[in-house]
Design a protein around this nucleic acid. Structure first.
Lengths: 340, 340
DNA sequence: GTAGTCTACACAAACGTTTGCGTAAATAAA
DNA sequence: TTTATTTACGCAAACGTTTGTGTAGACTAC
């Protein structure tokens, strides 16, 4: 027969015949309250099992001590690892994390942003949808003083806070390694044209070829929508030639899994007839019989941690009313090739 | 030069020289407010860009429209998939999801529960820590009328709401299949003794052997703490015998990955000299050259969805003040063997 | 003309806390 | 003794909203 009502400072006050403010101050051990009173308040609070109602305070402070994280999909290790980074970091500051999966749908992304705004989160971290190319849905957040930090999949604009990963360092390591092994025909299997990451990879691929004095050859460049059939089609384009590329950069490890299966089925030997390096650094490779030479780690956990750090800095300064509009927090971290 | 202050109904009221209550009712199109007034209120609200402050309402309603999910680790696909299940389901009800990773630490689990209580979540979903064997830290939630539903890793008691997965169906399918293939020595690599899942697997293993008229042989039963070295040690115990088991049930797919590597290194051929079936149904198998015969799917997404459904039912009835203490929501779903 | 019924709105309490300000009593300084 | 200072506490506003109750004026009915 538990009472449905939770004890409040009001009841403590009534029980002790003191004012509410006295109880509040006593509970915080405020010096202006006498020692005896303070002790009596603590005692009664203990007896009643009183615990402060934080939502009242959050409401009053206009804070929720909650940040939102919007990611395309929890199912992808890259993003669940990022979420880990956020959670670990936020936890240290006693912040809560609420999540939203955009599932790579622009419309869902909009809805989630709206919803998080309604819940008055103190800040938002976003890794964009593949579809996202306009950013108006984030503008409303400014009105509510909700800072936003993008990570990994970031908008193509300058006036934002973001953390992203520079693919150049990793890909240069990869192509340099290929070259050092004697490879001259280094292909590329890229992602969907609409994705920013795709354009980025292509540019960097060209740049790295140039840095190694290799010519660009469009016959050994393919792209995939990331579906299994398309992955297979892409690698087939590369190996259905008289002189196949002996090394291939692959969009990510998932695509590579299909590539490996396909080249094997075609009677080619991986790491002999054809070598691969891809992006993602899935933990699973160490258990696979057939592995790429290396994979390029993009440090999702670290990206997310830094982004969260940025976000807290913004929340902090926002509260102080400082205007940080003009100096944006931005960091690009280097990717790194991990050998297998 | 944006104003830092958000528009409230109070300002709308002042601007129109009507009372606050009139504005509130007008915004909800309450019939007792005249059409003209209602329209004027809507118009001004629009102009000011007014949006209702939900945290004020949440505070007043003593609701947050947020549920908490406590899982051991986001990094495990099993749990991130479960989180998906929660998120998808909760999203439909416009509920938010806040997460907490216990990292299999009992102390962290306690802290997270406490924290979620402070945030006045409307309900909590929990999959227990490996370490958790007492449940007092959940008792406090009753006082706050926060319902709790356990899933997958559930407490060993009757008076709880839970969803879990019955391993018997899947293991029976597995062992029956082994037997049908002619296997007579079917081993088991089990998990840490302290885990409930371990005891459960052992009991069911015995039961399934019995159902297939096979004798229990402790020489072909090993256990592992789930560390890599221990996994290797466990499978070595089984294959370092003159007459090795020709089939082995393995605690989960991660352990199995180590087992496969070990038996290969020992010169045995998987699916010929020794066959495996394990638990988890990792999506990765289809890309592996060497696969188990099958894996037993435990439906984390479905478990989590059902648990979330239960939780909403409890939140619902709790609000109505109904006493549901005596009829617990419990469901055990059947595991299923998935062939490769 | 009086009583009764609507219509359309205002008032105020409530949710639980924090905090600036005011003040009586006690003490210290003059 | 008078004035100033300190100690210890109470009052009330504020955060933004919802909602029960009260009520002035207009209208209807007899």
């Amino acid at each position: 027969m538990q009472s449905n009502k939770l004890p409040t400072i009001k009841e403590i006050a009534k029980k002790l015949n003191v004012s509410i403010s006295t109880v509040s101050r006593a509970l915080h051990d405020h010096p202006s309250i006498g020692l005896v009173t303070t002790m009596r308040v603590h005692k009664v609070a203990q007896e009643l099992g009183y615990e402060v109602n934080k939502s009242a305070i959050y409401f009053k402070e206009r804070k929720t001590y909650t940040i939102g994280v919007i990611i395309p999909s929890l199912a992808e290790p890259f993003f669940s690892s990022a979420l880990c980074g956020v959670e670990d970091f936020a936890g240290q500051f006693n912040y809560n994390v609420i999540i939203g999966q955009s599932l790579d749908s622009f419309e869902r992304e909009q809805r989630i942003v709206e919803n998080m705004k309604d819940h008055r989160v103190d800040g938002i971290l976003v890794s964009l949808t593949k579809e996202t190319s306009t950013y108006e849905h984030f503008d409303n957040l400014k009105k509510y003083n909700i800072p936003i930090v993008f990570f990994d999949r970031v908008p193509q604009k300058k006036d934002i806070h973001f953390v992203s990963c520079n693919l150049h360092s990793g890909m240069l390591q990869a192509i340099t390694r290929f070259v050092a092994m004697g490879h001259k025909k280094i292909g590329l299997i890229n992602g969907p044209a609409k994705m920013a990451a795709t354009l980025q990879r292509l540019e960097i691929y060209f740049k790295c070829l140039k840095e190694n004095n290799l010519p660009i050859n469009y016959d050994i460049i393919a792209s995939t929508t990331l579906s299994k059939e398309d992955n297979v089609k892409a690698i087939k384009k590369l190996i259905d030639q008289e002189e196949i590329p002996t090394a291939v950069m692959v969009f990510n490890d998932y695509v590579l899994l299909d590539c490996i299966a396909t080249v094997k089925a075609a009677g080619l030997e991986v790491n002999k007839d054809i070598s691969f390096i891809s992006f993602a650094n899935l933990p699973i490779w160490e258990y696979m019989d057939t592995r790429p030479l290396a994979s390029i780690e993009q440090f999702s956990y670290r990206q997310a941690s830094i982004a969260t750090d940025f976000l807290f800095k913004l929340i902090e300064t926002n509260n102080k009313g400082e205007n940080t509009d003009s100096n944006y927090l931005q960091q690009i971290i280097d990717s790194e090739m991990v050998n297998y």
